[in-house]
Design a binder for these strands. Structure first.
Lengths: 160, 160
DNA sequence: TCAATGTGATTAATATCTTAACATTCTGAG
DNA sequence: CTCAGAATGTTAAGATATTAATCACATTGA
C-alpha cells in the first residue's frame, strides 16, 4: 500500500492541469463559436495589445514552442487574420502583425471573453482570484531546474 | 490604447499554463530519461496508487480525453507497461492494469519524481505551495459554465 | 421481445506538442 | 575578410488534443 501522504503532495502539475481545464470550459464554447483555437486567440490578443512583434516573442509570451508556432502562423495568415513578413535588417526574424480582419475579430470577441472571465470571477471570488494569480506569478519565476545527472544526491530518505 | 487594467486580469488561463510549464521543467528531464511521456506517467501513478481501473476513470482522473487515451493505452501495452482487457460483465468497459514491468518502472521513477517535487517545494515554500494547491482545488470545482447562447446578457458595460 | 435510447470506447480529421535535426542568416574573433 | 559559432525559423516524426461521427454493447420501456 503506497504512502498516501507523500502521494498527495505530488499533484501540483495535475492540479494546474485540472484547474486550467475547469477554466477553459468557460472560454472554449466562445472560441469554438468563432472558429478560433486557444492558441490563435492568445496570439490575437497579444498582437492587439502590443502591436506587431517577432515570432520568437510571441512564442515566449504565448507559451508556444517555435515548431508549433510556425504552423499556427501559416494557418492564421491563410485565414486572413495576420500578416507575416521578414525583418528588413535581419532577415532571420519573422515579423507578425494583425490584419484588419484579425483586429476586427479580436475586438468583437474580447468583450465576450471578458464576460466569461467575469463569470469565473463571480463564482470564485475576486480577492481569492487575485491571490491565486499572484501565487501563479511567483511559481512562474521558478529557477531552471538543476540538471538531473549533475546531482543525483537529491534523493531524500522520505522519498524512498 | 487598450484598457490595460482589464487586460491584466484576463490571464488566468495563461498563468495556469505558464506556471505548469515552469513546474514541468523540473519533471521533464526525468521522464525523458526513462522514455515516458507526461501522460503515460500520470497513468502509471494512478494505476500504482489505486490498482486496476476502467479507461473512463483514467480519462477523468488523468485529464485525458478518451480519443487520446485510446492511443496512449495501445502504445503503453505495446511497451509492456500495462494490460488491457474487457470487463466480463459489460464488455464495453475496458479494464486497465499495471504489468509487472510497469509496476517496477513506476516504483523506480517515483522517488526521483518526488525529489523533483522537493526541489520545487524548497524554492517556493511549503506553506505557499499548500495554499496554492488548495486554491487550485477550489478552482477545479467551478460549476459548468452556462451555455453561451442561453444568456447573452452577461455582457457588462465594463467589458465593452 | 424488440425498438428506442444510452453508454463506453474507438475512428477520423485536423491542430498542436515535443524532441531532434536542418537551413539561413548574423556576428564576432582572429 | 573570413570562418566558426550563435541566433532564428523551419522540417520531420511521433505523440497527444479536440471535435464529430461511429461502432458495439447495455438498458429501458412499450
Amino acid at each position: 500500500m503506497p504512502t498516501s501522504s507523500a502521494q498527495h503532495q505530488h499533484r501540483l502539475p495535475q492540479h494546474l492541469l485540472r484547474a486550467r481545464e475547469a477554466v477553459m470550459a468557460y472560454f472554449r464554447p466562445l472560441l469554438n463559436s468563432v472558429g478560433l483555437t486557444e492558441q490563435q486567440w492568445r496570439i490575437l490578443r497579444l498582437l492587439d495589445d502590443r502591436g506587431e512583434m517577432e515570432a520568437g516573442v510571441i512564442a515566449d509570451l504565448a507559451c508556444i514552442l517555435s515548431p508549433s508556432l510556425t504552423g499556427i502562423l501559416v494557418r492564421m495568415e491563410k485565414a486572413g487574420l495576420i500578416h507575416r513578413s521578414r525583418d528588413k535588417v535581419d532577415s532571420r526574424r519573422l515579423i507578425v502583425s494583425l490584419s484588419k480582419e484579425g483586429r476586427q475579430l479580436t475586438r468583437e470577441v474580447a468583450p465576450l471573453s471578458n464576460a466569461c472571465y467575469r463569470q469565473i470571477e463571480a463564482h470564485f471570488g475576486e480577492e481569492k482570484l487575485e491571490l491565486l494569480i499572484s501565487l501563479l506569478n511567483e511559481l512562474e519565476q521558478l529557477p531552471a531546474p538543476v540538471a538531473l545527472s549533475e546531482d543525483k544526491a537529491l534523493l531524500t530518505e522520505a522519498d524512498r
